[in-house]
Amino acid sequence: MPQKGYVEISVEGCKGCNLCVLHCPTNCLALNTKDTNSYGLHYAYLAEEDKCIACMNCSVICPDAAITVYKKMAA
């Protein structure tokens, strides 16, 4: 079974480049196109948390180091 994870994305640190959304293998990220941060930029968020497998593709690709990744500990 794949591991389970979740990510935190800094709203102010995100520039809305969409690269994390493109490279997430489970499509659990999305760009919030209804809201902006204080720089006027749409920001990415974890839209479907149960799909995250803690693969870190998003944090590796994010130019602005806006993503923090967590992994579920073994029970």
């Binding site: 994870g5 640190g13 520039k15 944090s59 180091a65 806006a66 990744v69 500990m73």
Partner: peptide, 27 residues
């Protein structure tokens, strides 16, 4: 029940970089 596995590197200051969105200078 979760553990941290990745965070912004310590040696990268918290300052917002001026580069355009998606620019590999930031990466």
């Amino acid at each position: 029940g979760y553990e941290l596995i990745y965070k912004r590197p310590e040696s990268l200051l918290q300052t917002r970089m001026h580069y355009c969105p998606g620019c590999f200078h930031s990466t």
